[in-house]
Amino acid sequence: MWYLRGVIQFYHVQKRYPNGTDALTDVTLRVREGEFVFLTGSSGAGKSTLLRLLLVMERASDGQILIGGRNIHVLRDSSVPYLRRNIGVVFQDFRLIPRRTVFENIAISLEILGIKGSEIERRVNQMLEATRLLNRAQAYPGDLSGGEQQRVAIARALVNEPAILLADEPTGNLDPELSHEIIELLLSINRKGTTVVVATHDTALVEHYAMRTLVLAKGQLVEDRPKSARADKFLAGERPSQMERASQSDRQTVPMPLDRQTGPLTSLIVPGTAPTVAHNATTTTGPIPSGAGILPLVGSPFSSSPVRMTAPVPVLEDLPEEGDLSAPSDGTDSGGES
């Protein structure tokens, strides 16, 4: 039985479009299993192309891409669906099916696996609870706020417990408060062992969390910034930003992290450093929008243990053996079988 591990490797990957444009040039990188990585760069830098290559929505023009040690460069078209079942994906525009309810949208990821109805119900309800959408199960995407829609998209991406989660500008359509909510949700998912790659051009968000950051510019990988000590705290489930936020009792008035705020106070903030409570308490006003706020991570399936709660969905059963690659691999985390 095949499982795909959450290791991503790029070796001298190039993507050239038929019109001669180079979307990616000689990109070599490695994302370890269980890592949380920001992929950043300006529009057109190649972030989306990189994600599209991982999803085999496009094929690389040159170089090799390995996911879980499997060379997707030589993957047959008929095997692509089985690869995608190991990769959850979240988009800026949510990509929910408007004709289907929240429940049905999330259930799709399980329906394609041919899982029986009662099991689908159990697992979707578990996801709905984890993403605080239980009371919206029968609503249609059009009736939801942006934050809720993105949570549905995340729930759909995760309900079959993929090894890797790709998020393409997941906060692009959300206000800063909801953006943090979504990133924290992704962090809690990462703590469960899922490799998370978030493509974003929101530099403030990237700097706030200080995770490992891959910077693309004009299709080239120009910087690979390691995570900071502050990121370790986020990854450990602590909230260094907690001091920026209000306590649970007065969350209503202080939802916004400082480095996202405008006005004279922001000039005092050095990116990557923790601001003080005093700033928050005095500068943020107004009630938070409905559906906003910090997700209750305690008790959610993502927070109970640092390992997966249930066995991963067996996939790639039909994936051919052709994925083996001659390109270098250290063998420690590139194995495709378990």
Binding site: M57, R85, I112
Partner: peptide, 16 residues
């Protein structure tokens, strides 16, 4: 068309 693309992205086979 959108729905078909989404299904394809989450790993649905063409026959599904």
């Amino acid at each position: 068309r959108d729905e078909i693309e989404i299904l394809s992205l989450v790993g649905a086979t063409p026959s599904f």
